Simulated scan of single mutants.
Amino acid sequence: MLLNIAERHKLILKKLENDGFVEVADLSQEFGVSLVTIRKDLKALEEKNLLFRSHGRAIPSNPYTTEHHVNIKEKINKKEKTRIAIAAGLILKPNDSIIIASGTSVIEFAKHLKPVEGLTVLTASLNTALILAENPNIDVIQLGGIVRRSSSSVIGPTSEKMLKEFTFTKLFLGVDGIDIDFGLTTTNSMEASLNKEMIKAAQKIIVLADSSKFGKKGFGKICGLEDVDQIITDKKLDHKIKEKLEELGIDVTLA
């Protein structure tokens, strides 16, 4: 007996919750209906904001992130970002020379950073530089370049060229999206380009990102996950994603 529309929709959403995605061809075969019928089902569910259609499949939500001003983003998942920031500070070592990129997670890191002996910080973030400059025990280097107002940070060829003159022990990187297959992304292509140069200049790459960033994609690709050494996130991270990251050799810290 064929399922009616309501029954199909209920089962589609259940499979989506359990598996994280559904395939049009698989649903067509399982329900005994045409591909066209399944596409209509998925379109109807998408119009109700219950899923997002993409290349013959559907996933729970739109993976593409949009750009917001840093003043808005810093209020999102504030408690999680604070715990991530504190955990990140624990891995600093005496005489570390580190890069702090841009974004609200790394600004929070700067706010809670307790300096170790001989700490040098280079940053693209204007807010981070101002926060750390108040501490006489930290040597702060501000990258120059084009000011990106939405993130209160610098980007462009001047900052990229400056990075080539240094080498660092650690990079603390904030991102807009982390996708298991596509890697790390940000909403701005010039920022992505600067982040690539930061990765080249650092010995260890540490990503600070709350769990809402996983499964998301931004416009500009920074790198694949093979370049990442450690991710510090919060305890809401899906355990399946954590397992996949660890299989890739990434140290995952849940704060």
Score class of each variant (00 low, 15 high):
residue 187 T to Y: 07
residue 143 L to T: 12
residue 119 L to Q: 08
residue 218 G to H: 10
residue 168 F to I: 00
residue 127 N to L: 13
residue 114 K to H: 09
residue 153 S to K: 00
residue 135 N to A: 02
residue 143 L to N: 05
residue 124 A to C: 03
residue 123 T to A: 03
residue 164 K to H: 01
residue 109 F to Y: 08
residue 206 I to Q: 07
residue 183 G to R: 04
residue 157 P to F: 02
residue 127 N to T: 13
residue 190 M to Y: 09
residue 219 F to S: 05
residue 174 G to F: 04
residue 197 E to S: 14
residue 164 K to M: 04
residue 199 I to R: 12
residue 130 L to M: 14
residue 134 E to Q: 15
residue 110 A to V: 02
residue 114 K to N: 07
residue 147 V to P: 10
residue 158 T to D: 01
residue 217 K to H: 04
residue 114 K to F: 10
residue 220 G to I: 09
residue 161 K to A: 14
residue 180 I to T: 00
residue 161 K to R: 15
residue 127 N to S: 11
residue 124 A to D: 08
residue 187 T to I: 05
residue 116 V to Y: 10
residue 170 K to P: 07
residue 145 G to Q: 09
residue 175 V to A: 03
residue 145 G to F: 00
residue 139 D to I: 12
residue 166 F to V: 09
residue 119 L to V: 05
residue 176 D to R: 13
residue 111 K to H: 14
residue 109 F to D: 02
residue 176 D to L: 03
residue 187 T to A: 05
residue 177 G to S: 01
residue 210 D to Q: 04
residue 213 K to F: 06
residue 165 E to L: 14
residue 171 L to D: 04
residue 179 D to P: 12
residue 194 L to P: 03
residue 191 E to N: 11
residue 126 L to P: 10
residue 183 G to T: 13
residue 140 V to D: 05
residue 180 I to M: 12
residue 182 F to H: 12
